[in-house]
Amino acid sequence: MRILYGVQATGQGHISRARAMAHALKQHPDVDVTWLFSGRPRERLFDMEPFGDFQHRAGLTFVTEAGRLRYRKTIMANRYWQFIRDVQRLDVKAYDLVVTDYEPVTAWAGKLRRQPVLGIGHQYAFGKNTPVEGRSLAQHAVMSLFAPVAQGVGLHWSDFGANILPPILDLPPAPTAAANDYILVYLPFEDQSAVTKWLNGFSEHRFIQYASTLPNDEQGNVKRRTANIAGFKSDLASARGVVCNCGFELISECLHWRKPVLTKPLAKQMEQLSNGAALETLGYATVMRQIDNDLTARWLAAPPPAPGLSFPDVSATLASWLADGAKAPVATLGAALWGQPAAV
């Protein structure tokens, strides 16, 4: 079984899911996976060892500034002729199965050559029963056409539809030690200097702030760290709470490890706004639509208890399903996984 697995690398969450799937697929020696990443320059990818000799394409990406999605700059920043050439040159017929986690080169190459593409990711979970916020006609069109698939396997925090499974997690065993007295902060779409200054305003609290552009230093009550997988997961395990944007994967990890979350969705980005709506509907986190000092102060003083959640091992189930040619109905997988005891 030869699988081409495309991963959108604009956000770290897609890569985190792919890392879990890579480990799970390695348990099937008859499966040969070629990984393809796009949406971020190759030199800015890190901790990519699980993917071996992976392929890279420019793909398509989104431009954000100061916590907002910038549509005009996004349109100007992408190299469309390069994208078209990459789609035309990708030989999807060499594979038995083509899978994409919202990666557009693999998705469109399959569509061009009439080879069915299977989508596995959070973006395929927005059906009629899933909470949605901020979806204009333009955003709906972009979301539908960005990485089109023949079949979508959605991932979410609740079974909003028959095609939806619990989150795929790339986490070590759950921490057993008591949490330390600091808050982990990961707001990659914000101005990092502004974030540090904002956190300095809560001088009675300690923070660890992560971003790919930060140096390893200390600014008053804020330790700043360059993004890396091992350090981040270690600090997440010991944090008493998390302040972050509304990306699906990190919040899934927080819910699984029962960390209180204060989250700020990326403005004008439908997926993150909808994640915020889902969290509010489910009562799983505190959501602020913009930086709110009063709300933050109240949350820091007394973070609401995290919900008593833990999710099953979805990556192992999906790896076995893919190794078998993805034959069983997704609804059958969902019924089994939502009813499984948690993998803690």
Rank of each mutant, 00 (worst) to 15 (best):
F54V: 11
W198K: 12
I291P: 09
T61K: 15
T100W: 14
N200C: 07
T106H: 09
L295N: 07
T64R: 08
V314L: 08
H23P: 01
R289S: 09
G334T: 10
R72W: 10
Q192G: 04
A162G: 11
M288Y: 09
Y124F: 15
P341T: 07
L36F: 01
T286D: 06
D191L: 03
L318K: 00
M1K: 13
A147I: 00
V31Y: 05
A107L: 11
H122A: 13
P188V: 05
V105R: 02
V99E: 08
G6I: 14
A125S: 11
L333Q: 04
I291D: 09
T296P: 02
E253C: 00
T130D: 07
L165A: 11
I3T: 08
D32C: 02
G6N: 13
A343C: 08
P329Y: 07
V63L: 10
A328D: 07
Y182M: 13
L266R: 06
L250S: 09
H256S: 03
L322R: 11
W338Y: 04
A109E: 14
L199H: 00
P116Q: 01
F54Y: 15
G119H: 01
G201S: 02
Y80V: 13
F37P: 02
A18M: 01
S320H: 13
F126D: 02
I229H: 15
K259L: 00
R19G: 05
R240G: 05
D86Y: 00
R68H: 10
L97I: 06
L118N: 11
A147P: 04
D91A: 11
G276Y: 06
K26P: 12
Y80D: 12
G127D: 13
G67N: 11
N216T: 03
Q139E: 15
G11C: 03
K268R: 06
A328R: 13
R298A: 14
L36I: 04
Q219N: 08
D217Q: 15
A177T: 09
G11L: 03
F62K: 09
N129E: 14
E204L: 13
L300R: 01
E65N: 07
I164K: 03
T196V: 06
T10D: 14
P167K: 10
G110T: 07
M288P: 05
V142M: 10
D170W: 02
H156K: 06
K327T: 12
P173E: 08
V149C: 05
D235W: 01
P303A: 02
I168H: 04
A178E: 07
S38H: 09
P104H: 14
K26Q: 15
A24P: 04
F207G: 07
L45I: 12
S136G: 05
Y102A: 12
F189L: 08
M270S: 05
F146V: 15
N245H: 04
N245P: 00
T226R: 12
V195D: 01
A316C: 00
V132S: 12
A328F: 03
V287T: 14
M76Q: 15
D53H: 10
D47S: 13
L187F: 08
A77M: 11
E204F: 11
R89D: 12
D91R: 12
A18R: 02
N221C: 01
Q340S: 12
F54I: 09
R17E: 02
L300A: 04
Q8F: 07
R206C: 11
D159I: 02
G127M: 14
R40Q: 05
A22R: 00
A179W: 11
L300V: 04
T317A: 10
Q115H: 10
